[in-house]
Design a protein around this nucleic acid. Sequence first.
RNA 1: GGGCCGAUAGUUCAAUCGUAGAACAAUCAGUUGUCAACCGAUAGAUGUGGGUUCAAUUCCCGCUCGGUCCA
Length: 429
Amino acid sequence: MDIKKTHDIGTLGSSMKGQKVVVGGWVEDLRELGKLTFLTLRDVTGVSQIVVAGAENLQQVKDLTRQSVVQITGAVQESKARDFAYEIKAEKVEILSRAIHPLPIDPLGRLESGIDNRLNARALDLRNQKTASIFKIRHNVLLCIRKVLTDRGFLEVSTPKIIGSASEGGANLFSLKYFDKQAYLAQSPQLYKEQLTLGLERVFEISSFYRAEKSHTVRHLTEFTSVDIESAFMDYTDVMEILEQLIVSVFEHVEKTCIQEQKNLGMEIRKPKAPFDRVTYRQAIEDLGKQGLTLSFGDDLLDSHLRKLGEIHPGFYFLTEWPLKLKPFYIHEKDDDPEVSKSFDLQYGYLELSSGGRRLHDPAKIKARLLEQGLDPAQFEDHLRAFDWGMPPHSGWGLGLDRLMTVLTQIDNVREVVLYPRDPERLFP
RNA sequence: GGGCCGAUAGUUCAAUCGUAGAACAAUCAGUUGUCAACCGAUAGAUGUGGGUUCAAUUCCCGCUCGGUCCA
């Protein structure tokens, strides 16, 4: 049987009256009126109405279920329907695949199923135009990120996800058996991307990373997508600017290109204004002190603190110059204030979207910091070797793509914006 | 790991210590212009183990699963 479509539904129009077409798609809805049946047929490009008449064709669609796959051969004609400018009068109806009934969720979303049911039937959930819109937006976000970074002279790279030693200290790593060796799943491309600056100067990676944290919240996943950049000859303020411009570009791009998706989601994307506020850690704890939350220099900011800061600074802002001791071993200290680091987080309200900074490039300093943090420099031998081969001063950041998606789409739960999310409980599908 | 909330029909919800109700979906009948079609009929459910009670879906405890907040 020939399954060649002559047209995608989105390419049809009322100007094609009388033209014979072959279309294929999923039965979204069907209305039987005795000697006449209307089908609403959807493919990935759009939706159309099919009119079925005649004893033989009616027999074909008599026990047709919603979401079944059909191929229609027919002619385009004018429609009297309110919602369709044209329709297809079916000459031949072929059922290519039958959907069972009942389906585990209502893919039209007329009755909105709970997230657990939808994730259990995720592939089907994508027939819901609201859900599909999220992932069309995600595609456009990725497209834009690649374009912006490429235009800035960054090269896209892929680093290993199976790693032989714990890259930033052992906590929170998934371990796995690698034949007869111990291996781990990478929680960040940090060490690799730093090394790559000495050969490629400016690199970025968009990839999944893994964190074995038993956090069950709307913003944590054990497998998440990270956008990472690392650049030689840039200070932390330079990569902050790149991040800021990237965020603005992403919002602008989606605002312009995803009109229908915004409609489907019932939301409007509004481009944020650059520059974002820059708030130093010292300023932040001072502000918190005024709100009755007393902190000393060196205290980490808890969720409650970040929420309060989020109230003071709604939207995007940078939280900069953290105490060095709160930062990983590879972060550079400030020249005039060695207690403070050349580091920043990009926040959206209370939500941390990105973390970055200037990195140490002097191997002696790195070794000292490793010891300070109770880590064994011998474990980092492979990494440290590269620092003797002409390691340039460099800076970078990692951006949580899934979290950015929740901000962009104004959706609370990060599971909504990931096709098959992994959290401490969910391993299937 | 801890707190709070929850688990009722395929789905989304309601109710009750004593016959568990609706909407959408389904099945059957009718309908040649529907478009979240209409119309009549039919069928379909209290997560799991224990306890209290004459009686538990309802109250209590454990477990499992989910949601959410915190660490």
